[in-house]
Design a protein around this nucleic acid. Structure first.
Lengths: 128, 128
DNA sequence: CAAATTAAGTCGGTATCCGACATATAGTGA
DNA sequence: TCACTATATGTCGGATACCGACTTAATTTG
């Protein structure tokens, strides 16, 4: 098992928007606007990222090496025919790095032990 | 069921320290310093509240009516004999209000649906 | 009385979120 | 052709909560 010589624990806990962004990218690469829509669907409409939150988070996650830009599409090829046009500014796609995947897993574990501790503590007093 | 004419959802999500404080008080009334020690135990030593975090959170939670002061002990009685002495400043005990209990429950529910969504999303790609 | 322990409180710095605003590109219809 | 709409990225200022460092207070013990 390749230990990556970096301590991940100081990145936790993740705030809700950040966790959803990483979770969205764990499915596959996406560009920013697609993440916003995916997160809304993923959370049953409960989490609606503002563009401020999204693009600032993406910059931060790039900096922390939890995600990376996907090159190739955008403005690379000369006259590639498979370049499908689309409205809006040129898209920038991102993908999860291995380290990003580790962080998602670690946050999942934290969440689960949190719920476990809460259930233990809450067991014993009647609710309502 | 007594609906309390207040929308709780704008108080969520709770940050980790705040959730642990409310969880600690859901067991019974405690004073600040005791909460710090209880939360550390409750989280297997992972969450160690700084006093800044704790006392600022208590003030905020009082303001939001999620907790309340427990009167009676401290400096109320004239010369009550059951007043056990203890070192340190006069203790101030807090307890969870019904609204505070609702918030804990709502946060639990949020956490569980979060984990559910994450498991759904993560199921399908190999881990490691 | 000094030191240690328990306890509460304050403050400045920092991280993240959020809404509002700005910018850029492409398709559509009058 | 020119506005309008939808898609898409990016910036900025304000607000909130956390955190470590520091301060104050009260009691016990040597």
């Amino acid at each position: 098992m390749p230990h990556q010589e970096d301590d991940i624990s100081h990145l936790l806990p993740l705030r809700e928007p950040t966790f959803f962004i990483l979770l969205s990218l764990s499915e596959g690469e996406k560009h920013g606007y697609a993440i916003i829509k995916d997160v809304a669907a993923l959370s049953n409409g409960k989490v609606n990222l503002s563009t401020g939150t999204l693009y600032e988070a993406l910059a931060r996650l790039l900096d922390q090496l939890l995600i990376e830009r996907v090159e190739g599409r955008g403005d690379a090829g000369g006259d590639a025919p498979e370049l499908e046009a689309h409205p809006g500014r040129p898209r920038k796609a991102y993908r999860l790095t291995p380290k990003g995947g580790q962080v998602v897993q670690a946050e999942m574990a934290r969440l689960q032990s949190l719920i476990l501790a809460a259930k233990r503590r809450l067991a014993g007093q009647a609710g309502s």
